[in-house]
Amino acid sequence: MSLSHLERLEAESIHILREVVAECEKPVMLYSIGKDSAVMLHLAQKAFFPGKLPFPLLHVDTTWKFREMIAFRNETARRIGAELLVHTNEEGLAQGITPFGAGSRTYTDVMKTEGLKQALNHYGFDAAFGGARRDEEKSRAKERVFSFRNAEHRWDPKNQRPEPWKLYNTRKKPGESIRVFPLSNWTEIDVWSYIAEQNIPVVPLYFAKPRPVVKRSGALIMVDDGRLPLEQGEVPEFKMVRFRTLGCYPLTGAVESEADTLDDIVTEMRESRSSERQGRLIDHDGAASMEKKKQEGYF
Protein backbone atom coordinates (compact mmCIF):
# COMPACT_ATOMS: atom_id res chain seq x y z
CA MET A 1 0.00 0.00 0.00
CA SER A 2 1.32 3.43 -0.79
CA LEU A 3 0.18 6.88 0.28
CA SER A 4 -2.34 8.74 -1.83
CA HIS A 5 -1.63 12.07 -3.42
CA LEU A 6 -3.37 14.02 -0.62
CA GLU A 7 -1.71 11.95 2.12
CA ARG A 8 1.69 12.76 0.66
CA LEU A 9 0.89 16.47 0.46
CA GLU A 10 -0.39 16.45 4.03
CA ALA A 11 2.70 14.71 5.43
CA GLU A 12 4.98 17.11 3.54
CA SER A 13 3.16 20.20 4.84
CA ILE A 14 3.21 18.95 8.43
CA HIS A 15 6.95 18.33 8.09
CA ILE A 16 7.44 21.94 6.92
CA LEU A 17 5.35 23.37 9.78
CA ARG A 18 7.29 21.40 12.39
CA GLU A 19 10.64 22.28 10.85
CA VAL A 20 9.95 26.00 11.31
CA VAL A 21 8.78 25.62 14.89
CA ALA A 22 11.86 23.51 15.70
CA GLU A 23 14.38 25.87 14.11
CA CYS A 24 13.00 29.41 14.22
CA GLU A 25 12.74 31.63 17.26
CA LYS A 26 9.51 33.50 16.77
CA PRO A 27 7.19 32.17 14.07
CA VAL A 28 3.75 33.50 13.20
CA MET A 29 1.03 32.28 10.87
CA LEU A 30 -0.43 34.80 8.46
CA TYR A 31 -4.08 34.01 8.56
CA SER A 32 -5.98 35.52 5.68
CA ILE A 33 -9.27 33.73 6.46
CA GLY A 34 -9.64 32.13 3.02
CA LYS A 35 -9.76 28.45 2.07
CA ASP A 36 -5.96 28.12 1.84
CA SER A 37 -5.55 29.60 5.31
CA ALA A 38 -8.24 27.20 6.54
CA VAL A 39 -6.29 24.22 5.20
CA MET A 40 -2.97 25.56 6.52
CA LEU A 41 -4.50 26.08 9.96
CA HIS A 42 -5.97 22.59 9.93
CA LEU A 43 -2.57 21.13 9.03
CA ALA A 44 -0.97 23.11 11.85
CA GLN A 45 -3.48 21.67 14.31
CA LYS A 46 -2.49 18.22 13.08
CA ALA A 47 1.23 18.96 13.25
CA PHE A 48 1.21 20.00 16.90
CA PHE A 49 -1.61 17.84 18.26
CA PRO A 50 -2.34 17.26 21.14
CA GLY A 51 -0.73 20.61 21.90
CA LYS A 52 -2.17 23.94 20.80
CA LEU A 53 -0.58 26.03 18.06
CA PRO A 54 2.91 27.05 19.24
CA PHE A 55 2.58 30.40 17.44
CA PRO A 56 -0.03 33.17 17.09
CA LEU A 57 -2.17 33.94 14.05
CA LEU A 58 -1.74 37.31 12.40
CA HIS A 59 -4.35 38.98 10.26
CA VAL A 60 -3.44 42.12 8.37
CA ASP A 61 -6.79 43.85 8.26
CA THR A 62 -7.25 46.41 5.52
CA THR A 63 -10.70 47.25 7.01
CA TRP A 64 -12.23 46.32 3.62
CA LYS A 65 -12.67 42.59 4.16
CA PHE A 66 -16.11 41.03 3.81
CA ARG A 67 -18.01 41.19 7.10
CA GLU A 68 -18.56 37.45 7.00
CA MET A 69 -14.79 36.96 6.84
CA ILE A 70 -14.20 38.94 10.02
CA ALA A 71 -16.94 37.06 11.85
CA PHE A 72 -15.50 33.75 10.66
CA ARG A 73 -11.98 34.80 11.69
CA ASN A 74 -13.01 35.60 15.25
CA GLU A 75 -15.07 32.45 15.53
CA THR A 76 -12.21 30.27 14.26
CA ALA A 77 -9.66 31.71 16.71
CA ARG A 78 -12.13 31.11 19.53
CA ARG A 79 -12.96 27.58 18.37
CA ILE A 80 -9.37 26.34 18.24
CA GLY A 81 -8.11 28.45 21.14
CA ALA A 82 -5.44 30.27 19.09
CA GLU A 83 -3.93 33.64 19.86
CA LEU A 84 -5.12 36.09 17.18
CA LEU A 85 -3.24 39.29 16.38
CA VAL A 86 -4.94 41.83 14.13
CA HIS A 87 -2.93 44.62 12.56
CA THR A 88 -4.15 47.56 10.51
CA ASN A 89 -1.93 50.18 8.92
CA GLU A 90 -3.25 53.15 10.89
CA GLU A 91 -1.10 55.63 8.95
CA GLY A 92 -2.65 54.46 5.71
CA LEU A 93 -6.09 54.72 7.24
CA ALA A 94 -5.34 58.24 8.48
CA GLN A 95 -4.23 59.25 4.95
CA GLY A 96 -7.65 58.18 3.77
CA ILE A 97 -6.37 55.45 1.44
CA THR A 98 -9.21 53.34 0.06
CA PRO A 99 -9.56 50.81 -2.76
CA PHE A 100 -11.23 53.52 -4.81
CA GLY A 101 -10.07 56.72 -6.47
CA ALA A 102 -6.30 56.60 -6.35
CA GLY A 103 -6.57 53.09 -7.72
CA SER A 104 -5.96 49.69 -6.28
CA ARG A 105 -2.21 49.87 -6.81
CA THR A 106 -1.38 52.27 -3.95
CA TYR A 107 -4.07 50.71 -1.83
CA THR A 108 -2.59 47.20 -1.96
CA ASP A 109 0.88 48.59 -1.43
CA VAL A 110 -0.02 50.68 1.61
CA MET A 111 -2.69 48.63 3.34
CA LYS A 112 -1.43 45.11 2.61
CA THR A 113 2.33 45.18 1.92
CA GLU A 114 3.17 48.06 4.29
CA GLY A 115 0.70 46.80 6.89
CA LEU A 116 2.29 43.37 6.81
CA LYS A 117 5.83 44.74 7.15
CA GLN A 118 4.75 46.96 10.07
CA ALA A 119 3.25 44.01 11.90
CA LEU A 120 6.24 41.72 11.32
CA ASN A 121 8.65 44.42 12.49
CA HIS A 122 6.50 45.36 15.45
CA TYR A 123 6.34 41.86 16.88
CA GLY A 124 9.80 40.84 15.65
CA PHE A 125 8.70 37.62 13.96
CA ASP A 126 11.55 35.78 12.24
CA ALA A 127 9.38 33.37 10.26
CA ALA A 128 5.90 33.79 8.84
CA PHE A 129 3.75 31.03 7.35
CA GLY A 130 1.66 31.95 4.34
CA GLY A 131 -0.94 29.93 2.50
CA ALA A 132 0.26 30.74 -1.02
CA ARG A 133 0.41 27.93 -3.57
CA ARG A 134 2.74 27.62 -6.54
CA ASP A 135 -0.07 26.90 -8.99
CA GLU A 136 -1.62 30.33 -8.36
CA GLU A 137 0.65 32.50 -10.41
CA LYS A 138 3.85 32.32 -12.47
CA SER A 139 6.25 34.05 -10.09
CA ARG A 140 4.95 31.98 -7.17
CA ALA A 141 5.82 28.89 -9.22
CA LYS A 142 9.49 29.76 -8.86
CA GLU A 143 9.47 30.63 -5.19
CA ARG A 144 11.02 28.31 -2.65
CA VAL A 145 9.04 26.75 0.21
CA PHE A 146 11.33 28.68 2.57
CA SER A 147 11.49 32.09 0.95
CA PHE A 148 14.22 34.24 2.34
CA ARG A 149 13.69 37.99 2.92
CA ASN A 150 16.31 40.58 3.78
CA ALA A 151 15.90 43.12 6.58
CA GLU A 152 13.81 45.27 4.20
CA HIS A 153 11.55 42.25 3.50
CA ARG A 154 12.66 42.10 -0.12
CA TRP A 155 12.63 38.90 -2.16
CA ASP A 156 15.54 38.30 -4.51
CA PRO A 157 14.24 35.85 -7.14
CA LYS A 158 17.66 35.38 -8.72
CA ASN A 159 19.42 34.45 -5.52
CA GLN A 160 17.23 31.84 -3.86
CA ARG A 161 18.62 29.19 -1.54
CA PRO A 162 18.84 25.68 -2.94
CA GLU A 163 16.30 23.43 -1.24
CA PRO A 164 17.18 19.82 -2.09
CA TRP A 165 15.28 16.85 -0.62
CA LYS A 166 13.54 17.96 2.58
CA LEU A 167 16.54 19.98 3.75
CA TYR A 168 15.65 23.59 4.51
CA ASN A 169 18.29 26.09 5.56
CA THR A 170 16.67 28.33 8.17
CA ARG A 171 19.77 30.24 9.25
CA LYS A 172 19.51 33.99 9.05
CA LYS A 173 21.09 37.17 10.36
CA PRO A 174 19.33 39.50 12.79
CA GLY A 175 16.56 41.44 11.05
CA GLU A 176 16.25 38.93 8.22
CA SER A 177 13.23 36.68 8.03
CA ILE A 178 11.72 33.77 6.18
CA ARG A 179 8.32 33.44 4.59
CA VAL A 180 7.30 29.81 4.62
CA PHE A 181 4.68 28.29 2.33
CA PRO A 182 3.55 24.87 3.58
CA LEU A 183 0.98 24.60 0.76
CA SER A 184 3.50 25.27 -2.03
CA ASN A 185 2.76 21.97 -3.79
CA TRP A 186 -1.02 22.00 -3.40
CA THR A 187 -3.33 22.93 -6.25
CA GLU A 188 -6.74 24.58 -5.98
CA ILE A 189 -8.48 21.25 -6.57
CA ASP A 190 -6.30 19.58 -3.89
CA VAL A 191 -7.35 22.26 -1.41
CA TRP A 192 -11.06 21.72 -2.09
CA SER A 193 -10.75 17.93 -2.12
CA TYR A 194 -8.97 18.10 1.24
CA ILE A 195 -11.56 20.51 2.71
CA ALA A 196 -14.29 18.08 1.66
CA GLU A 197 -12.42 15.01 2.90
CA GLN A 198 -11.50 16.52 6.27
CA ASN A 199 -14.68 18.52 6.71
CA ILE A 200 -12.81 21.78 7.35
CA PRO A 201 -14.99 24.83 8.09
CA VAL A 202 -14.70 27.63 5.50
CA VAL A 203 -16.22 31.10 5.12
CA PRO A 204 -19.83 30.79 3.82
CA LEU A 205 -18.98 33.20 0.97
CA TYR A 206 -17.52 30.24 -0.93
CA PHE A 207 -20.99 28.73 -1.26
CA ALA A 208 -23.52 30.08 -3.74
CA LYS A 209 -26.31 32.28 -2.37
CA PRO A 210 -28.28 35.26 -3.68
CA ARG A 211 -26.09 38.29 -2.93
CA PRO A 212 -26.34 41.97 -3.94
CA VAL A 213 -23.79 42.68 -6.68
CA VAL A 214 -22.86 45.34 -9.21
CA LYS A 215 -20.94 44.75 -12.42
CA ARG A 216 -17.66 46.64 -12.78
CA SER A 217 -14.98 46.19 -15.47
CA GLY A 218 -16.44 42.78 -16.15
CA ALA A 219 -16.35 41.64 -12.52
CA LEU A 220 -19.27 41.12 -10.14
CA ILE A 221 -18.59 43.16 -7.02
CA MET A 222 -20.64 42.47 -3.92
CA VAL A 223 -22.13 45.40 -2.10
CA ASP A 224 -21.10 44.23 1.36
CA ASP A 225 -21.75 47.49 3.20
CA GLY A 226 -22.66 51.14 2.63
CA ARG A 227 -19.07 52.19 1.89
CA LEU A 228 -19.07 51.03 -1.74
CA PRO A 229 -19.66 54.23 -3.75
CA LEU A 230 -22.31 53.50 -6.32
CA GLU A 231 -21.95 55.20 -9.66
CA GLN A 232 -24.83 57.02 -11.22
CA GLY A 233 -27.55 54.66 -12.32
CA GLU A 234 -25.85 51.70 -10.66
CA VAL A 235 -28.35 49.54 -8.80
CA PRO A 236 -27.25 46.48 -6.82
CA GLU A 237 -28.88 43.37 -8.15
CA PHE A 238 -29.41 40.05 -6.37
CA LYS A 239 -27.62 37.21 -8.14
CA MET A 240 -26.81 33.64 -7.23
CA VAL A 241 -23.05 33.98 -6.75
CA ARG A 242 -20.10 32.55 -4.85
CA PHE A 243 -16.42 33.43 -4.49
CA ARG A 244 -13.46 31.31 -5.60
CA THR A 245 -11.02 33.52 -3.80
CA LEU A 246 -11.53 36.00 -0.97
CA GLY A 247 -9.86 39.36 -0.39
CA CYS A 248 -11.04 42.91 0.02
CA TYR A 249 -14.65 43.03 -1.10
CA PRO A 250 -14.40 45.97 -3.52
CA LEU A 251 -11.55 44.17 -5.34
CA THR A 252 -12.86 40.62 -5.36
CA GLY A 253 -15.07 39.42 -8.17
CA ALA A 254 -17.81 36.87 -7.58
CA VAL A 255 -18.72 34.11 -10.02
CA GLU A 256 -22.25 33.18 -10.92
CA SER A 257 -22.80 29.71 -9.60
CA GLU A 258 -25.35 27.32 -8.14
CA ALA A 259 -22.73 25.37 -6.14
CA ASP A 260 -23.87 25.50 -2.53
CA THR A 261 -22.23 22.34 -1.16
CA LEU A 262 -18.61 21.15 -1.04
CA ASP A 263 -19.35 18.40 -3.54
CA ASP A 264 -20.86 20.90 -5.96
CA ILE A 265 -17.80 23.11 -5.59
CA VAL A 266 -15.42 20.24 -6.33
CA THR A 267 -17.48 19.29 -9.38
CA GLU A 268 -17.62 22.87 -10.59
CA MET A 269 -13.88 23.17 -10.11
CA ARG A 270 -13.14 20.15 -12.29
CA GLU A 271 -15.23 21.54 -15.10
CA SER A 272 -13.93 25.06 -14.72
CA ARG A 273 -12.01 26.58 -17.57
CA SER A 274 -10.73 29.69 -15.82
CA SER A 275 -8.13 30.27 -13.14
CA GLU A 276 -9.01 31.34 -9.64
CA ARG A 277 -6.99 34.54 -9.56
CA GLN A 278 -9.00 35.83 -12.49
CA GLY A 279 -11.30 37.32 -9.87
CA ARG A 280 -8.45 39.25 -8.28
CA LEU A 281 -8.15 42.68 -9.76
CA ILE A 282 -4.61 43.38 -8.53
CA ASP A 283 -2.90 40.73 -10.67
CA HIS A 284 -3.86 42.18 -13.98
CA ASP A 285 -1.73 45.32 -13.86
CA GLY A 286 0.93 43.70 -16.06
CA ALA A 287 2.61 40.42 -16.81
CA ALA A 288 5.18 40.78 -14.06
CA SER A 289 3.00 42.57 -11.52
CA MET A 290 2.98 39.87 -8.84
CA GLU A 291 6.72 39.36 -9.13
CA LYS A 292 7.26 43.08 -8.59
CA LYS A 293 4.91 43.16 -5.60
CA LYS A 294 6.69 40.18 -4.07
CA GLN A 295 10.09 41.80 -4.49
CA GLU A 296 8.73 44.74 -2.53
CA GLY A 297 7.63 42.51 0.30
CA TYR A 298 4.12 41.41 -0.60
CA PHE A 299 3.38 37.89 0.43
Binding site: D135, K142, P157, K158, I189, D190
Partner: peptide, 28 residues
Protein backbone atom coordinates in the same frame (compact mmCIF):
# COMPACT_ATOMS: atom_id res chain seq x y z
CA UNK B 1 3.03 29.27 -20.04
CA UNK B 2 5.97 28.30 -17.90
CA UNK B 3 8.60 31.03 -18.17
CA UNK B 4 7.48 33.11 -15.25
CA UNK B 5 10.00 35.67 -14.09
CA UNK B 6 10.27 38.83 -16.14
CA UNK B 7 14.05 38.41 -16.31
CA UNK B 8 13.48 35.05 -17.96
CA UNK B 9 11.02 36.41 -20.45
CA UNK B 10 13.45 39.09 -21.53
CA UNK B 11 16.28 36.62 -21.99
CA UNK B 12 14.10 33.77 -23.24
CA UNK B 13 15.76 31.29 -20.86
CA UNK B 14 14.83 29.58 -17.62
CA UNK B 15 16.94 30.58 -14.63
CA UNK B 16 15.28 28.87 -11.72
CA UNK B 17 13.31 25.78 -10.92
CA UNK B 18 9.64 26.36 -11.69
CA UNK B 19 7.07 23.99 -10.30
CA UNK B 20 4.05 23.03 -12.36
CA UNK B 21 1.01 21.01 -11.44
CA UNK B 22 -1.34 19.04 -13.58
CA UNK B 23 -3.49 16.00 -13.32
CA UNK B 24 -4.90 13.46 -15.73
CA UNK B 25 -7.56 10.88 -15.02
CA UNK B 26 -4.95 8.53 -13.56
CA UNK B 27 -2.39 10.59 -11.73
CA UNK B 28 -1.45 13.93 -10.27
Amino acid sequence: LVDGLSAEREQGITIDVAYRYFATSKRS
